[in-house]
Design a protein around this nucleic acid. Structure first.
Lengths: 216, 216
DNA sequence: CGAATCATACCAACTGGTCGGTTAATTGCA
DNA sequence: TGCAATTAACCGACCAGTTGGTATGATTCG
């Protein structure tokens, strides 16, 4: 077996690296990157400073690696839901509704205080990061826009909307509404908001593309 | 005359205080609170460290005063638009549309790189602030919810919605959509997004409350 | 062995905050 | 009104603690 049980102190560089990234993610989402010290990361990850700087050349390098891993997970998560949605319905509009439903499920299944989104955290400290790190945010945002725009365009072709719409900015709502919802959720501590706000996006699309009322 | 022209170096405690708050607002929205040093604030405000600690007992006190001023400006801005909207139409639904239009105008009139929202900046560094400071965020958020909820309930009474809606979370969209839009705008540097996303909220409400299509 | 992985001890730079002192405005009183 | 006394606004050198980062040595594993 190459897999190893999570015993306390074994030599496993990948696990150490992951522990550093996990610890820093938690800390950064609560304190911001600037106020997250290497010492705090090291302590929470249960390692030492030497190990930290063995894996990451600098704090900035950690920032970059962290957001890259985050962006990749985000992309993979979306991709997985997309595959599932396509399997469940051939109709592009229904696929969008299913996608929304899957995310609503995810949101409802969450527990503990809501952590928020690393992209938003970074962008509100943007001057602390180098261009390459910020570029990851941009690319992720544009990826969301492109994916949702393509789905929406197919949906529009099959279901002409009741009123003309700006497709690009409509696609953006799939990113912007959750992002705003995260801010509210973190502020009020009410995790039901995420799904409830997503449901409004669903209703909007239903009114826009369906002849009458609900489907669900 | 007790009023004084804005000449370079005059003794004017209120002006000094405002300069500190202005400088720290700019810096915090770009670097976050944690990474904004008192020295940087002092330098940008064109004063000295001594003057800073004469006006604010600590950095935390600055944080609190800054968000309180910000919340008050936000509230006053909303209030002013509300008054104008009520003057322009007696119909509650139309008032909401007018309010949205006024904010769209504000967004379109902006120039320079978009600064973002201090509430979002703070909440993504929430562990750095004391309870009283975070409470300001909560109160502002709940104020928005209460105001928009009241308007929406009046609108619903006059224009029964096509499908049943959760009023509270619908009211939240007036806060959450701009907030998410701010994140996207800061990320992509495209200031047109703000108004375009707001317009979707308008379209949603039109589809929800009006018999057919557009009004505007 | 010898390279990869991690620990310990340490440093120079910077941080928020303090403090004694200076300068300008305001007040009290003749 | 004239002006000394008092107070508020402001300055900038300084301090103790913290920061990101380094140097070097110990341990593990192929």
């Amino acid at each position: 077996m190459s897999e190893r049980a999570s015993s306390p102190r074994v030599r496993d560089p990948e696990k150490t690296r992951a522990a550093i990234l996990d610890a820093s993610l938690d800390l950064i989402l609560d304190h911001g990157y600037g106020a997250t010290t290497v010492d705090a990361v090291v302590q929470r990850a249960g390692i030492t400073k030497g190990a930290f700087f063995h894996h990451f050349g600098s704090k900035a390098e950690l920032a970059r690696a962290l957001v890259e891993r985050y962006a990749e997970m985000d992309r993979a998560h979306l991709e997985a839901h997309l595959v599932r949605a396509r399997k469940l319905s051939p109709d592009p509009l229904q696929q969008i509704f299913i996608l929304l439903g899957l995310y609503e499920e995810d949101f409802e299944a969450m527990d503990g205080p809501f952590p928020g989104c690393l992209f938003a955290s970074y962008i509100y400290e943007n001057k602390l990061f180098d261009e390459g790190t910020i570029a990851v945010l941009r690319e992720s945002t544009l990826m969301w826009r492109a994916v949702m725009r393509e789905m929406l365009e197919k949906a529009i072709a099959a279901h002409p909307p009741r009123v003309p719409v700006d497709v690009e900015s409509l696609a953006d709502l799939f990113y912007a509404i959750p992002e705003g919802s995260f801010v509210m959720t973190k502020t009020l501590g009410d995790r039901t908001l995420l799904a409830r706000h997503a449901r409004h996006l669903r209703t909007y699309l239903e009114l826009l593309f369906l002849d009458r009322g609900q489907t669900t």
